[in-house]
Each structure stands twice: as C-alpha cells, then as structure tokens.
Design a protein around this nucleic acid. Structure first.
Length: 422
RNA sequence: GGAGGGAUGGCAGAGCGGUCGAAUGCGGCGGUCUUGAAAACCGUUGUCCGUCAACCGGCGGACCGGGGGUUCGAAUCCCCCUCCCUCCGCCA
C-alpha cells in the first residue's frame, strides 16, 4: 500500500512512476486526494465537537457535585445536540476512510527508478548468465520421463490421491528433495538467516499484510470453517512475524529463512507450462526474508541476489539473472530479479527464484517500524526464494542425465548419501 | 466440545463511572556523585490522527484485547467476539 502522504506531496512523480508499471488509472489518485481533503475537514470538525463535549462533561460533574442540577440539565441538553453531530460525523468518517482505503489498495507499488517500462516479459533485462551448459546424451529425456524411468515421481498417483498438480515423490527423489531442503537451510543459516518453522495456515490479516489479500485471493486455498488460508509462500508468515512492532535500529537487518510447503491454486494454467514439475499446486520452497533500514534496502537486495546466485552456482546449474521490466513486475514489488535455470532436455528457462524489494509497500500494511531518533519510520521488506524445489529438481535430473544414470553435483553428496540415481 | 477465571503502558502490577494516558515497581534514557563502574539520588520515558509552527515543539482528538451498547461523561457498568489460564472430555 502506498502512503497517502506520498500522494499528497508528490502526486505527479507518483503518476510518472506508476506509468512504468503501465498503470493508467490515475483518476484514482485524484479521487483519493479529494476524499482525503473531505476526511480531514470532517476530522477537524469532529475533534472540535469532542473537545466541547469533554469540557462540558467535566463541568457537568462539577455542577452535580455543587448541587446545581438545573444548570447541569441544561448542559446535558447541549451535549446531546453535539453528540448527534459527533455521531453523524463519525459515521461519515468511517465510510470515507473505508472508501479511501479501498482505493488506495488498488494502487500498485512504485517501481524503482532503474526499472524499464517494457511491454512484456520479453523486455526483461538479462543481468548476467552463468554456469556451464551440460552435454547431454542424444536421447536426453525431460524430467517427467526420467521420473518414471527411475521410479522417482508419480504424477498419476498424486492425481488419484488428490488431484492434478500434487505429485508423489518416491525413494531417491524423496530423499533428494529432503537433502536439497536441508542443504538450502544450512546455506542460508550460514549466511546469518535465522531459521523458522512457521504455520502453513494463516488468517486473513496475515495474508493481507504481505499483499496476498485482497489482490490474489483466488490464488490461495481457503478453509472456510476456520477462515484460514494455506500459505502460497513462507514469505507470508515470516514477514508477518514482526507485524505491529517498533524495532530498535540495532535490531536491523532482520534476516529470516524457512522451509515450507507452498500451496497455489494456479487457476487457468495449461499446456507445457504445467507439464511435470513445471507448475504444481503443492511444492516445497526455502525462503529468505529481510527487514532492513530503508537507506540500505538496495544493498540488501544485491546481497540477496549474490546469495541466491552462489547457491545456484554450487548446484552447478546453468542460470541467468533477469531484472523484470515494469510490464512483468508484481503488484507489490519495487524491484525484482528473477533467477532462471536452463532445463536442457526441455530446452527452456525455468524460474527458480524471485528476489524482490518491496520497500514500504508491505510494511505500511503490517506497521513494521523502527525507531529513528525521536520518530518512527517504516522498515523495508525484501524476500526471495532460496530456492524453489520442483524446478531445481527438474533441472538437476535433466541436466545431469548420463547413460549410466543421473549424477548429482558434489555439494549434495553428503546430504543425499548417494552420488548417482539409476 | 463443556464449566469457571482473566486480558491495563517494554515487563510486572494498581485502578470508588468524572480531574486516568492511567499509581507503584522493574527496565530504558539523561544527569549528580565516582579515576571508572556499581549503589544511591534527581529528572525523563507510549502509539496513532488532525492542526499550527514546519528546528525544538505547541494545541486538539483517539487508544487500557477487538466490536457494539448504557451515560452529560466509561479502563471502570452491560452484550457479542477473539485470545490466554485452570478443570473435564477428545486426541498426535
């Protein structure tokens, strides 16, 4: 959510920034400002009346004590009149505040100055590319075929147990999945991230805090009886841990990591995008989150990018880092880098991580501040995958297939207990 | 799920319906003392909104789990919800 104060002070600049995200409903801003004007006027009137009432009530108390009931009754009469106005104003205020809030929620986050507008994902900027291209045997298979050849992942069984997009991992695949989680968490905690194991179900307030509600309601699984949402990413519970708090500056930066399963409805997806592990409804992911001083958040973003890059490098996968253009960025982000690994057998890039700075877009909703001298200021929140498992697993299987099986990168050997599948 | 008790400032813990944003203690911050520290003593200590000044800050309003109600006036009385504790039931 954008601060209304920003709209008041730098409206034109805000509109220019929003245009980079191809957001054109600038009339919303005018509406907001108009309503805000009205709101402040009403607040002033409301508060003045309350002031009158407070004074009169105190006087009534004195009069009663002095036994002057006649004058007290007269004042009561007067207060009753004010009360009517106060209540009317209060109702108007509640209504207008709700309206403003609702409009404010329709404004996406401002993209960072360095973000190009672009027209589509094709205009994303490739920052750098790394890792070495694998040389595959002639009859290289996509991971879903490798999965059945080596008895690793059962998509059809998952469909029978639940529905499509809920794969069952078996034997070496299950072990490899667990090994990756363990390795990723070790890698993150070694870099100073504190490990958490958060709830997988959250309430509406929590889902609102990170921006899943109201924007992406249909993306989340929902349990009506308890009004709980299944988390689409660990970002949601992790970032909300510090909701409604005022931090000491020396507590920053706060670095958190967690492994969780993630649940996404992914309505409307089809075709090769959803083949195999490319897109599933339940998957494992290790996430990193940072809450940082606003002056340092872009440094932190670079640090997180380097962190994730190091992790992918250690897995010996070919990758590239892409800076998203305005047209492809999420509603909540100010700057996002996507990490993609090349899946040789499918001959396509698969997104395995997305690292973003949200600046104050989330922390305003969550009221996460820090003490800056005499005042409080919002911290910046950032997060990234480190890493999303299914596509990493797909790339590992595909890129490392040889005639005699799948050779795992050395870094994983201590975690898996085996070096080769097949 | 059933019965009872509770929810107050960073923490602990008071609070006859009016002068309570809220006693007291601890903690924090500043100071006196000290070579330094501790102790002692003195002072200070929340958040949000509006408004004026726009450097400090002044003024007004709101906030005692959340929401409604009674009243001229509610932390204090009533109702609903949530959460916590104790007991019973169920259960990994």
């Amino acid at each position: 959510m954008l601060a209304i104060q920003l709209l008041r002070e730098k409206k034109d600049w805000v509109i220019a920034r929003l245009s980079v995200k191809h957001f054109t409903q600038t009339h919303l801003i005018d509406e907001i400002l108009q309503l805000d004007e009205q709101r402040r006027q009403w607040i002033t009137e409301h508060d003045q009346l309350q002031n009158l009432r407070n004074t009169a009530s105190r006087e009534i108390g004195q009069l009663m004590k002095a036994g002057n009931h006649a004058e007290a009754a007269q004042k009561k009469q007067q207060v009753a009149e004010w009360n009517e106005k106060i209540n009317a104003l209060k109702n108007q205020l509640d209504e207008i505040e709700q309206k403003i809030q609702q409009l404010l929620l329709q404004l996406p986050n401002l993209p960072h100055e360095s973000v190009p507008a672009g027209e589509s994902a094709a205009d994303n900027v490739i920052i750098r590319q790394g890792g070495s291209w694998p040389t595959l045997p002639e009859n290289a298979l996509p991971h879903w075929e490798l999965a059945s050849r080596y008895d690793l992942i059962h998509f059809d069984t998952g469909t029978r147990l639940t529905g499509s997009g809920f794969p069952v991992f078996k034997g070496a695949a299950a072990r490899l999945e667990r090994a990756l989680i363990q390795y990723f968490l070790d890698y993150n905690t070694r870099a100073g991230y504190v490990e958490y194991l958060p709830p997988l179900l959250v309430n509406a307030q929590t889902a609102f805090g990170t921006g899943q509600l109201p924007d992406k309601e249909g993306q989340m699984y929902f349990i009506p009886e308890d009004q709980f949402y299944l988390i689409p990413t660990a970002e949601v519970p992790l970032t909300n841990i510090y909701r409604d708090s005022i931090l000491q500056p020396e507590q920053l930066p706060i670095k958190m990591t967690a492994y969780t399963p993630c649940f996404r409805r992914e309505a409307g997806s089809y075709g090769k995008d959803v083949r195999g592990l490319n897109r599933v409804h339940q998957f494992d992911k290790v996430e990193i989150v940072q809450l940082v001083h606003p002056d340092q958040s872009y440094q932190s973003l670079d640090e997180m990018v380097a962190h994730v890059e190091g992790l992918i490098q250690s897995l010996e996968l070919p990758y590239r880092i892409v800076k998203l253009c305005g047209a492809d960025m999420s509603f909540t982000s100010a700057l996002t880098y996507d990490f993609e690994v090349y899946s040789a057998a499918q001959q396509r890039w698969l997104e395995v991580s997305s690292v973003s700075n949200f600046e104050t877009f989330q922390t305003l909703r969550m009221k996460i501040r820090f003490r800056d001298g005499k005042q409080t200021r919002l911290v910046h929140s950032l997060n990234g995958s480190s890493l999303a498992l299914p596509r990493i697993l797909a790339a590992l299987l595909e890129n490392n297939q040889q005639a005699d099986g799948i050779h795992l990168p050395a870094i994983l050997h201590p975690y898996t207990g085996f070096t080769r599948i097949g």
